[in-house]
Design a binder for these strands. Structure first.
Lengths: 255, 255
DNA sequence: CAGGGAAGTATTGTTAACAATACATGTCAA
DNA sequence: TTGACATGTATTGTTAACAATACTTCCCTG
């Protein structure tokens, strides 16, 4: 008797696509307004059109992608209102969640977090921008993971990824993602089982990120989808495109 | 020049289906494990198979529906672990959110909440079980709506609906959904701008609901999908089926 | 009568062709 | 040169047929 687990490719395929695009957005390899054409996704992942469309629908249902009728799918471009909602939601959830983790964490969870912060530090040392961004976001998801709550893990994953889009659009200067030894401070408070301090630090951390947004900023152009999806781990040399890809011409003007 | 808004039927169709099934689950007209066959949905809503499948995928992505490969879609049947996660998440979010509403509500928001509580009272007076259940759940979503946060509104909608499924599975006795003048008490605290009391009451309210769950309970059978979806507002005479529909035979045994 | 297996039916999963829409190109006139 | 218009191309949306899987029923055997 073998295991019942279906090993069904269909769901896994979609998860693969969704995860990949999630990661790419999270580490700002995919800029807001980038067009995600069905054909490109089909070729990049070697799947049929149906799978591509299903994946795009899932991404759209989580606010990562925007579907425009007869026009296709685009990486979402949150506005200030979206940003307010996302940060407000995070401020409702994360301090409380961090406090809970401080109260209940076990040895394995703490080690996971410590390892992660170490990775963050080494990424910052090597000035790998995408890695820094990815790990910075992932820290917040990891808090939820360590708490053991699957629902909140998924919720935070969405919130963090959408935050990446927000920072991509409105982040002011290189400081917006990088000055984060704050994670280590938060982790110290967690380790000390100081729930209220951990909670306060988490809130302050979020408000710091929020404060570094500049909503008067002019939007950047999209990225080149093919080159982004080509590299399996995105750790490669995908530098931000200066010239706007063809597909985005009509998005150039703000009003 | 007319408005740009597309009035595109495709997205609206899916939203219609999703909303309808959401409502049905929320007011416990659709029991856990009920099979949602594509054919039934196509006929009930007069849409093609594509739309039905897309709607089911969306519902699945929010944990309301479970997709089994080659077997179809079923109303989700949360287990104790799911229940723990959902309630934990709600306890992280709702007290904080309620406190915020207490601090920031405006006249229109307060009126909305008061009207709603009045409707709850009258539903309880007329002993309309489904209406009571629906309104009880909706109160929590309405808190988020009044807060003006779209993300949290959607999140709470999902949480409340999944809570309905949990209560349908593990609710002990008729008390599990109905003894809720607590909503009025919470609203009083909100109106008095007493954020910390509102927060405490919200938490206590959730813990009361959680305490009334009995995880040793044997699961009920599913509902008849066609009759549920037939009535536009579900206010009709859909009484819970005692006999298990054909489709659910094989779900009867636990192991 | 119970259990197992085989054929038929029903449902879901997938693909491919078609239709509809938007986009790009090139032409013409002012 | 610029703008509008028409044509052609590319992309998305939809449908229907086909394939694969699961379910039901019936029959056969013990």
């Amino acid at each position: 008797m073998r295991h019942i687990r279906d090993a069904d490719s269909s769901l896994d395929d979609e998860h693969r696509i969704v995860d990949r695009i999630y990661s790419a957005v999270m580490q700002q390899a995919l800029a807001p307004r980038t067009k995600l054409s069905e054909a490109t996704i089909c070729e990049s992942f070697g799947v049929g059109r149906m799978r591509a469309r299903r994946a795009l629908l899932l991404l759209a249902s989580q606010g990562i992608v925007e579907l425009r009728s007869n026009r296709g799918a685009f990486v979402a471009s949150p506005d200030q209102r979206d940003a307010d909602e996302i940060f407000e939601a995070r401020i409702h959830i994360e301090p409380s969640l961090t406090a809970q983790v401080a109260q209940r964490y076990d040895a394995a969870g703490l080690r996971t977090l410590r390892d992660h912060v170490a990775k963050e530090k080494s990424a910052r040392a090597s000035e790998n921008r995408q890695e820094i961004i990815r790990l910075s976001g992932e820290f917040h998801v990891l808090i939820a993971t360590v708490s053991g709550n699957g629902f909140l893990t998924r919720t935070l994953r969405e919130l963090v990824t959408r935050t990446s889009l927000i920072v991509a659009m409105f982040g002011s200067g290189p400081a917006s993602c990088c000055r984060e030894d704050e994670h280590e401070t938060i982790l110290d408070a967690i380790e000390a089982r100081d729930a209220s301090r951990a909670s306060d630090l988490a809130r302050a951390h979020l408000e710091t990120i929020r404060r570094n947004l500049d909503f008067t900023k002019t939007p950047d152009s999209g990225s080149d989808l093919v080159s982004v999806l080509r590299s399996p781990s995105f750790s490669g040399s995908v530098t931000s495109q200066t010239a706007a890809p063809k597909e985005l011409k009509n998005f150039a003007n703000g009003s």
